[in-house]
Nucleic acid binder design. Structure first.
Lengths: 159, 159
DNA sequence: CACCTTTCCTATCTTTTTGATAGACAATCA
DNA sequence: TGATTGTCTATCAAAAAGATAGGAAAGGTG
């Protein structure tokens, strides 16, 4: 099939890293501060790159951190109040497939003749809604739960 | 807001061009062959770039074309049998946000420890389903209709 | 046939985005 | 004081996206 070798990502590696890192922090939410090296290793993310990502998440209020010996990171809010949508918007930008279909990051297409009758935009608005329907309703806590039960199911099926 | 200036596209310009071009062809489905220069002008797409796109769509069986004087392009199938999903998959690749969540273009993440319990993947599969629910159910014919009625509504509201 | 028109193919180019690393700096605590 | 740990800024290389150029091939017309 001819699309093999094409672009295969709508969500960047960076967002994937952010999600994995936050899931680690959500799982260990009761363990106090966690070292970035620890997060990097568990989530399998290059440590230096993770620094940038966690910094961004912190600046947006998702993380609390402390420097110095016995420092580290933890979630700034309960895991059931942080959604995938919020995270992806921070690391990748708006969820809409194209800017003219975005609520949070609307921008007119500069090559659009008449936005009112642009069928592409109307369809992409539906796509945006469908994406946000999933991502804005899924919290880190949900994901931890579903990850655990999926692992359990796989274990039961496999063994 | 801090995501201003970030990536604002999940669907490329190329796909937008493809959709606009095919919508032009769908609207004029009864007019026989249409010149690429005509399509380029109407859809507001750089002609040379459009050549590449239409070539790809043709090779995938969406278009019929003829060379020489009185040549041009037309849809190879009825407009109500061509979906947005099919088009976007040709021009941009799989709909899934990440390859490990794709049906049509599955590929394992090479940095994934245990796919079975990867919560990110589970969520992104839902996103994939949500996207394809919209795009695989929307045909060119649907879009032409909705574009027209949206234009009508705008006209009624505005004048 | 010769000629014009139009699609088709291949190569190339520039710009932007993505993913990643380096190194100095600042806070914290023993 | 000094080891530890997060924070900031700059920089880089590779890949993807967007676009253009030039000619080859096919089809119709006189």
């Amino acid at each position: 099939m001819s699309w093999v070798g094409k672009r295969l990502e709508m969500i960047t590696q960076k967002s994937k890293y952010a999600l994995r890192a936050l899931l680690v922090l959500a799982e260990r939410a009761d363990d106090g501060l966690i070292l970035i090296g620890d997060i990097a290793e568990t989530a399998n993310v290059p440590k230096k790159f993770l620094e940038l990502i966690l910094g961004e998440l912190k600046r947006h209020g998702l993380l609390h951190s402390q420097r110095g010996r016995s420092g580290g990171y933890r979630l700034a809010r309960p895991a059931d109040t942080i959604t995938f949508g919020e995270i992806v918007r921070i690391t990748d930008g708006p969820l809409a497939p194209i800017p003219c279909a975005s609520l949070s990051g609307y921008r007119r297409c500069d090559d659009c003749e008449d936005e009112a009758k642009c069928a592409v935009r109307l369809v992409m608005r539906k796509v945006r809604d469908a994406i946000s329907d999933v991502l804005d309703r899924t919290t880190l806590a949900d994901a931890v739960r579903s990850g655990n039960s999926a692992a359990l199911a796989a274990r039961l099926a496999g063994i």
